[in-house]
């Protein structure tokens, strides 16, 4: 058994090679550019929308004052991280696709060529290959999400003229970590399928079917089942029903609600969305709530996200070890 340092060294060598290869892949560079452009553009749009709300409020205020009345509605409040909603949506969809492509490319480039044969005739175990590939790709995803996080913070500063507080920067840091985990899971799904399927193109098709179900279909079913989503602005709000009464009403549909909750939690996208919406205060009840309380309130979603990532990792690991004739797929 080689010493631990040698094993770590070989994992690091494979991870470094993976990282270097990804940074030279044009398709992924385009993806990165797309994500950066989407981040800046969605923030710009959010600022315009917010400015529009402020102007509208100011006009209403002026009009009321001319009529000799005092305004009753509070002015629009700016929570800068709320403006990142569009960015979160893009990561849910485009980020997941980047993860899938990374997993596919990581296996296909070696399975389609004899590079894999060369790799497996070196004194390196399949376990080390798996760890190295997962580490290298996860590092790339971390760098990618860091770029998105930094771009978002800088855009808020340069476009909106708002410097984020240290508490908000901490939330951006957590956003980077959770987003890395989310995209890494899609990498591992695609990695698993690319290893498992005999034909590599089938793996890509299957990966996109999984993406479709997890990212779009399940969350859509959950949203459709949510009674509050049936009317724009919220069913209960439109009927002037307050929160306690809403809870009382929904209490009578606890079985239905449990089913909806179960379906939504099947999708890692929904878990990720809930965590980030809470962190950024996109779900308005979390605005002004201390960070620890937000995390505590969403601990179920955080644990599920971690569980999904661990399941993905374990599946990749077991498949790679069990597959004695990895060459044939």
């Amino acid at each position: 058994m080689p010493p631990r340092e040698m094993i770590m060294n070989r994992i690091a060598i494979i991870a470094k090679k993976e990282f270097k290869e990804i940074t030279r892949s044009q398709i992924l560079i385009y993806m990165l550019a797309l994500l950066a452009i989407l981040t800046v553009s969605s923030l710009t749009v959010s600022f315009f929308v917010f400015n529009g709300q402020v102007n509208e409020y100011q006009q209403s205020l002026d009009m009321l004052r001319q009529l000799g009345k005092e305004p009753t509605a509070p002015p629009p409040q700016l929570y800068p991280l709320n403006l990142l909603r569009g960015v979160v949506d893009h990561i849910e969809i485009v980020g997941a696709i980047i993860g899938l492509l990374l997993g596919y490319i990581s296996i296909s480039k070696e399975r389609n060529t004899d590079a894999l044969k060369l790799l497996l005739t070196r004194p390196v175990t399949k376990k080390e290959v798996a760890y190295g590939k997962i580490l290298g790709n996860s590092l790339f995803i971390l760098v990618l999400m860091s770029i998105v996080g930094i771009t978002a913070a800088l855009s808020i500063y340069f476009i909106g003229g708002i410097a984020l507080s240290s508490a908000e920067l901490l939330k951006v840091l957590l956003f980077i970590i959770f987003s890395t985990m989310y995209i890494a899971l899609f990498f591992m799904i695609s990695f698993f399928l690319s290893l498992h399927q005999r034909t590599i193109s089938h793996a890509l098709i299957l990966s996109f079917i999984v993406w479709l179900i997890v990212v779009l279909v399940i969350p859509q079913i959950g949203d459709t089942m949510d009674p509050d989503n049936q009317v724009q602005g919220g069913l209960f709000k439109s009927m002037n029903i307050d929160k306690p009464l809403e809870k009382q009403i929904m209490g009578k549909f606890s079985g239905y609600e449990s089913m909806r909750e179960f379906i939504e939690q099947l999708s890692v996208t929904k878990n990720y969305e809930r965590i980030i919406f809470a962190l950024f205060g996109i779900k308005s009840t979390y605005n002004g709530v201390p960070l620890l309380a937000i995390l505590g309130d969403n601990i179920g979603n955080i644990l599920l996200l971690i569980l999904y990532v661990l399941l993905g990792f374990t599946a990749d690991y077991v498949l790679l070890l069990r597959n004695k004739n990895y060459l044939g797929g």
Binding site: R24, S25, A115, L118, L119, R122
Partner: peptide, 28 residues
């Protein structure tokens, strides 16, 4: 052992030197 498969294909996006560096490092 060393092995050269038929139609040897290394990592296309890396240079010849980087490919050799990778295999040399893996070989310890």
């Amino acid at each position: 052992i060393g092995y050269v498969p038929e139609n040897v294909q290394l990592y296309d996006t890396l240079t010849a030197y980087e490919n050799l560096e990778f295999f040399a490092q893996l070989s310890g």
